[in-house]
């Protein structure tokens, strides 16, 4: 087995966590894993009650995201499985991935956030629909703030008076998360938090 990022041979050390399948076997080598820089910040927002981000958006992370999303390397979905599972090891909150527009999903051939959750064996509910194909990364802050809500609730789904946790790959200005939280709250969610893999500066 080679590291999925640098192709170096992986040195696997047996442990009881691995044996009991509490942890997944690491897909990347120690050097690559060390190159990602943790931030572990929790931020509050007027709509999203709490946003937790795990990593900074440094150069190795930029490369990872590029290879995963744009070079479409689905195998990389599991690279942060252990970290995501640790972060989401919570009782009965409901996990909701930020969806892609169906057309975009076909173009990319997979939905990256869902793939990350699946690879981490985290159960989730597909509650949201993305209404347009606009790409956040191409917009200015003003344009983002002026947008109409990007999401709607999937017809026939039941939003309870509970806590929902939104999952996205990257948190930049928070527009995406705020839009998603707004529709969930309007549909009856009591509290909406979010966990993102990366916190980017804007």
């Amino acid at each position: 087995m080679n590291c999925l990022l640098c192709e170096q041979k992986l040195a696997s050390s047996p442990s009881w966590q691995l044996l009991l399948a509490i942890e997944n076997t690491s897909l990347i080598c120690e050097d690559c894993s060390k190159s990602f820089e943790r931030v572990d910040i929790k931020e509050e927002d007027d709509v999203v009650d709490q946003v937790t981000s795990i990593y900074t958006y440094n150069e190795p992370m930029r490369e990872y995201l590029h290879q995963f999303k744009f070079l479409q390397d689905v195998a990389l979905a599991g690279v942060f499985a252990n970290e995501l599972r640790t972060e989401l090891a919570r009782k009965d909150d409901i996990i909701v991935p930020i969806p892609m527009h169906p057309q975009k999903k076909i173009e990319r051939t997979f939905a990256h956030v869902e793939e990350m959750l699946t690879a981490a064996r985290i159960p989730f509910e597909d509650l949201l629909i993305k209404k347009n194909t606009e790409v956040m990364g191409e917009k200015t802050r003003e344009e983002r703030l002026a947008m109409r809500n990007l999401f709607s609730i999937k017809p026939g789904s039941d939003v309870k008076n509970k806590t929902y946790i939104l999952i996205d790959d990257i948190y930049t200005t928070g527009t995406t998360l705020r839009h998603a939280a707004t529709v969930l709250k309007e549909a009856g969610a009591e509290r909406v938090e979010a966990v993102t893999l990366i916190r980017a500066e804007r």
Binding site: V74, A75, I106, T109, F110
Partner: peptide
């Protein structure tokens, strides 16, 4: 070991791609 199979949203089924030449634009079953 240099192939990955996943559930493809484009061809709506299991789809395999090559990781060996990935950086030149992904080549998959579809």
């Amino acid at each position: 070991t240099r192939f990955t199979t996943f559930n493809c949203a484009k061809c709506e089924g299991p789809c395999t791609y090559c990781r060996q030449c990935l950086k030149m634009g992904r080549v998959s079953s579809c």
